[in-house]
Design a protein around this nucleic acid. Structure first.
Lengths: 336, 336
DNA sequence: ATGAAAGCGCTAACAC
DNA sequence: GTGTTAGCGCTTTCAT
């Protein structure tokens, strides 16, 4: 803890009132203004004393007594990914508006770690959970939701589970950017994806297939599934793609995009002259690297805002589950 | 919180002992084995009951009573940076070994946010702080350290402040890689750095200057300082560098390295034929992007391990400041 | 409009 | 070896 801190008792004594009153004043200065139950002047005096004594409420005591920590736990799949890093930032800002804090964990796409991190957060006493599922995390999520913890899923969903979620319309987004590649003259588009079994990746693949199918039977498809974090296979994959006459790539993530684009440049080719490229998510490197790239810009701020709204609604409704499950599907913006 | 949880009281009743005993058993099963004060069989019985009832200790109550949260707060300067993302992971693992948890915040290189995040962590009741300073965070750090919170600085230091720290020998590392560029035939090396006033960046610049000076008076130096997160100036800078006959670049960070390397490729040049490149920190993209690149590999695991050792030593010594301030300087490894 | 009193779940003296 | 007794700082009935 900080230091030999000032307590409401000190303030009560100093202001000549009861601790109850101090408690009340301190709790209601942050939130709205239910001015009943406290005299204008008394309140002012208490607040002034609190200010002067540099009173900082002890959250631990608050939490113990009230059962609420005003903290929500967030588990992302990979905090090093710019997409999630930004989500994290936005969630923090959103939470702040509600008078809440956020504490983070990263599963690193590992279901065991996912479970551990969730346990740690729960043990720290979070009031709710915002989770980005990873492959294999279904059981852990089911357990948490089953135990009555307010939960919202982000970016990815778990089919067949009664839980609120905020995801992108991945299938449609993938369809649109693939279509755009075709419109720009691509005749043979490969999709580069992950082998992980995750809802959004699967949906993106589906959208790719949709677009190619719509284009006509003369167009072929190929989905190259890369194992997460083992990218050695990319050079040989690229060679084979070239031999197959591929003239465009659609990537499921910006990491994959960067990797494939690097390979393209490394082999002396250019974008978009030699290969056209489309992908998901923005990256600062695009600007100077591949100005003409087509990409899906996910509305990160909406992800954060909607997720926070959902979780707050659940938390505030209390254990009397009156808030219905809600599945929010966000529309993508396309750039390039 | 989780659910209608089981308390030590329940266990005490069920096992026919006092809550004190239960408390003692629960607290000492995690840590070492000071077996005094508890009967072999009683202990076993208590643990068995705890197990059966699925007892989970309430950390909030523990924290309130004991004043310790077994949690340390970490503030990094940018959680989206792979270097810090890995540090974060390692710190988590290290903390786990001591029976501690870690909670993160990111300052985003913004001193106001730095202060806010530190306050939030302190308010949540962390037992200690591991901080990556950012430009302008000196006052906030001074205040925290002054108030007696156990603190360790990581990656960057604040000169003239009595606080333990773990940093790389940045000056020497920079000198070595610059020297290596010279050995490989570079005649005109520019350094690309940040304009932020941060100890490690300054040290790296110094090391660069050292190496060039050692090489002889016929070698010129140029340090290009980029403003954090505004990279539009890079193309024009690159043009000017080319005109000045620059044949090698030394970058202060991997972000800068990626940006400059992209610019090099974009202009149709190659590494290392047209330009030689050296930089700090590893990046997955190097492998396929610039195989011959020279880079400083920071011993991330040592950063985490040493920092955790220092903070634990301080925490365990209690408020009776017997542990001396320690400045740990790690040696770099050079690759390429 | 205000206060007294009872704890939240746990740990730490201090008995025995 | 084990139990009793106090609280940690705060919120929350329930009186007044």
């Amino acid at each position: 803890m900080a230091k030999s801190s000032v307590t409401i008792k000190d303030i009560a004594k100093e202001a000549g009132v009861s601790t109850t009153l101090v408690s009340f004043v301190m709790s209601n200065q942050v939130a709205g203004e239910p001015v009943y139950r406290v005299g204008e002047d008394t309140a002012r005096r208490v607040m002034e004393v609190a200010e002067r004594l540099q009173y900082k409420p002890n959250n631990t005591a608050r939490a113990l007594r009230s059962g609420k920590t005003l903290t929500i736990g967030v588990v992302v799949s990979d905090i090093a990914n710019p997409f999630f890093a930004e989500i994290a930032r936005d969630l923090e800002d959103q939470a702040y508006k509600y008078g809440y804090n956020v504490i983070f964990g990263s599963s690193d796409e590992n279901p065991e770690k996912f479970g551990r991190v969730v346990d740690v957060l729960l043990n720290k006493g979070v009031d709710g959970l915002i989770l980005v599922p990873c492959a294999g995390s279904e059981d852990a999520i089911r357990k948490v939701v089953g135990s009555g913890v307010d939960t919202v899923l982000l970016d990815r969903e778990v089919p067949g589970l009664q839980v609120s979620s905020v995801v992108l319309d991945n299938r449609e987004a993938a369809r649109v950017i693939t279509r755009k590649l075709l419109d720009r003259g691509a005749r043979r588009i490969d999709m580069v994806s992950y082998s992980m079994n995750i809802s959004n990746t699967r949906d993106r693949e589906q959208g790719y297939l949709d677009a190619i199918k719509e284009a006509g039977p003369e167009f072929e498809t190929h989905i190259e599934r890369i194992t997460h974090n083992s990218y050695d296979s990319i050079p040989s994959y690229f060679r084979s793609a070239r031999e197959r006459g591929v003239d465009a790539f659609m990537m499921a993530t910006n990491t994959l995009a960067l990797l494939v684009m690097s390979e393209i440049y490394k082999n002396g080719y250019h974008i978009p002259d030699d290969f056209k490229v489309a992908c998901f998510d923005r990256n600062p490197l695009y600007d100077i690297y591949a100005p003409g790239i087509i990409f899906v810009r996910q509305p990160v701020d909406s992800f954060a805002a909607r997720a926070m709204e959902l979780i707050m609604a659940r938390i505030r409704s209390g254990p009397g589950r009156k808030v219905p499950i809600e599945q929010i599907v966000l529309s993508p913006e396309i750039s390039g």
